[in-house]
């Protein structure tokens, strides 16, 4: 495993730890989109259906279980925890899942490497992951106050796929791996969606101001 891949996985893991910290210690999910979190559950469930069938490494299996477990528990806290659920900005988190799920599923049926259940689900999970942050970004744009934890959470989540892009470049040129258009292009789109957020995040950090996205 190269350093970019590890950095990507670690920023991804750190983003989840940050969000769980906000939920468990602060007892708050203010500014967090339940829609996005539910999309991540769908992403992980459809991508890791091969967990019981194919073994790559201890690291891989553990990380998959962690991503599945934490994403499900985040959704549980936001929906059912009696204190946390009251901090959820339900009225502004209105993005409809189906507008993302349906096109991604149709695209996965049309563009995939092999027309098998596992392969189509895997492809679907990549397409859906690329756009799953959209409800979260819409929610941030509508929020007057973005707390540091939430801002850092979204930043780490964006940094994760950016590191994966470097990892793919490294694997292609240095480790001589094959071309993989589906993960590469969806990963590129996923990172590009964060461009605007990155710009304002870095700007607010440089000016030591509170993060605010223009409406």
């Amino acid at each position: 495993m190269n350093a970019f891949r590890l950095a990507g996985d670690m920023t991804h893991l750190l983003s989840i730890i940050l969000l769980l910290h906000k939920i468990r210690a602060m007892k708050s999910c203010a500014g967090i989109s339940l829609r996005t979190q539910e999309l991540y559950v769908i992403v992980f469930v459809t991508r890791y259906v091969d967990l019981s069938m194919k073994y790559y490494s201890f690291y891989n299996s553990i990380m998959k279980i962690v991503f599945l477990g934490t994403s499900i528990s985040i959704v549980w806290y936001m929906r059912y925890h009696k204190v946390v659920k009251q901090t959820y900005n339900k009225d502004v988190d209105t993005f409809r899942h189906i507008f993302l799920i349906l096109p991604c599923f149709v695209l996965a049926l049309l563009i995939n490497r092999a027309f098998t259940v596992i392969e189509v689900l895997w492809t679907f999970s990549l397409y859906l992951e690329a756009v799953a942050i959209l409800p979260q970004l819409v929610l941030l744009q509508r929020s007057r106050n973005i707390d540091n934890l939430t801002g850092n959470y979204v930043f780490l989540l964006g940094a994760y796929r950016a590191f994966y892009l470097l990892n793919w470049i490294y694997r292609f040129f240095i480790e001589n791996h094959q071309v993989r258009w589906i993960p590469w292009l969806s990963g590129l789109l996923q990172t590009a969606i964060y461009a605007d957020f990155f710009y304002y995040y870095i700007k607010s950090w440089k000016n030591r101001e509170k993060l605010k996205l223009p409406a």
Binding site: D50, K54, Y56, N60, K64, N167
Partner: peptide
Amino acid sequence: GRAVSRKDEL
């Protein structure tokens, strides 16, 4: 030849 890409990523 190039290495076959396995789905060993997350």
